[in-house]
């Protein structure tokens, strides 16, 4: 069983795209980069919502705009809040890495 890595406990781990130490045969990884007009947006607040729109977890993206969640297979929404605007994307996640680009606009 895979836990959403944040939101269930306390401090969010450092966000980054290296998959070192992550078992992608078991985990359902939802990750991507927050962008505005094609440029990465640093340190946006990214939340993971379940299929019913319910809050599940939140992380703060890295200085390069990267975010990552550990979820379960199924449909999810990732939503970003940032000074460059807000945005969201839907992802139907499967076990493994689910790249989810997330554009924001004001």
């Amino acid at each position: 069983m895979s836990a959403p890595l944040t939101g269930d406990g306390c401090g969010a781990p450092v966000q980054g795209q290296s998959l070192a130490g992550i078992d992608v045969d078991k985990e359902t990884v939802i990750q991507g980069v927050v962008t505005a007009g094609g440029t990465p947006v640093p340190q946006a607040y990214v939340r993971l919502l379940d299929a019913s729109g319910e809050f599940t977890a939140e992380v703060q993206a890295s200085p390069a705009g990267e975010f990552r969640f550990f979820a379960r297979p199924g449909q999810w929404v990732v939503r970003a809040l940032s000074r460059s605007g807000n945005g969201e994307a839907t992802v139907t996640a499967a076990i493994g890495v689910n790249e989810t680009p997330l554009a924001v606009a004001s």
């Binding site: 836990a3 890595l5 944040t6 939101g7 269930d8 406990g9 319910e54």
Partner: peptide
């Protein structure tokens, strides 16, 4: 006040805090 998955018993703990 935990998430529904923790409440129901599907989740025990987030993976990054095994000591708890």
């Amino acid at each position: 006040v935990r998430s529904p998955d923790e409440f129901s018993g599907k989740l025990l703990a987030p993976a990054h805090l095994p000591q708890e």
